[in-house]
Amino acid sequence: MDAIFVFEQLLNGLGYGLMLFLIAAGLTLVFGIMDTMNLAHGSLYMAGAYVAARVHEASGSFAGAVLAAVLVTVAVAALLELLVVRHLYRRDHLVQVLATFGIILIADDAVKAIWGVAPLMASTPAALAGPVQLFEGLPYPAYRLLLIGAGLLVALGLYLLVNNTRVGMLVRAGASNRQMAEFMGVRVGAVFSFVFALGAGLAALAGALMAPISSVQVGMGEAILIPALVVIVIGGIGSVRGAFVAALLVGLVDTAGRAFLPPALRAVLPPSVAADLGPALAGIAMYVLMAAVLTLKPAGLFPARA
């Protein structure tokens, strides 16, 4: 195991973490600020991936596909907000679970009816299809570098939005104490609609960007939902900073578990035990991390609310 290999795995962990952050950012905003548990975030992610895949194949333009995915998904989300989510803001978390679970069931059947059950083709833009030579001995997928860049940009953008703008101030006010904010005359309803649309846009962006390296198919939203939830819970619900740190943490722990745990166990345990134990432990590393964090800090690393 040489230094380059370790460095590459670190980069992989970072990359995976930033992918998770792309999805978790929107979720934590909606969750934290609107206090709304939106399980259908995964469905919006799926919608983004499907639209991007179709538009990319039809038009050949990847940038156009990403843009279309965000626009279409935000439009769908606006409708969803108007019809359903708006009426859930003041309701119990469990009622929100019930309603958004219902939306998942409907969304999966709708996607199946429109695009069929077979996974969709979603290709990498030709310019980024191969690897780039980072330095001697380390070719790295160009597309992953794009993902890392996109993740960092989204993080920066959200940081600036939340901390340096008037919208951000309202958002923070709504998140830390909704009743107080309403009392002070903040139009919480409008802020919420904006935040939900923003969250949907981020979900769509994540879906569109993940499409070229993952399978675009029904159920992809549910598969990504759980890691995303783990990230926002570790980070502290509602905290963008928390989601960022937690996403990197989960990315690194998960990758390190897969890359280093099996060989390490092989070195100390009999081969048959190690062969069974290594992958099993690597598979649950993320959940162990979450349980450990919550045991020490029951409201996550960066609690947004007092």
């Binding site: 590459e8 795995q9 992918m19 992953r144 990758t255 897969r258 890359a259 099996p262 598979g283």
Partner: peptide
């Protein structure tokens, strides 16, 4: 190499 069922990211294995 044995991976997690339903795994999404394979960068570590590819390395």
């Amino acid at each position: 190499i044995y991976t997690k069922l339903g795994q999404i990211d394979y960068a570590a294995e590819i390395a």
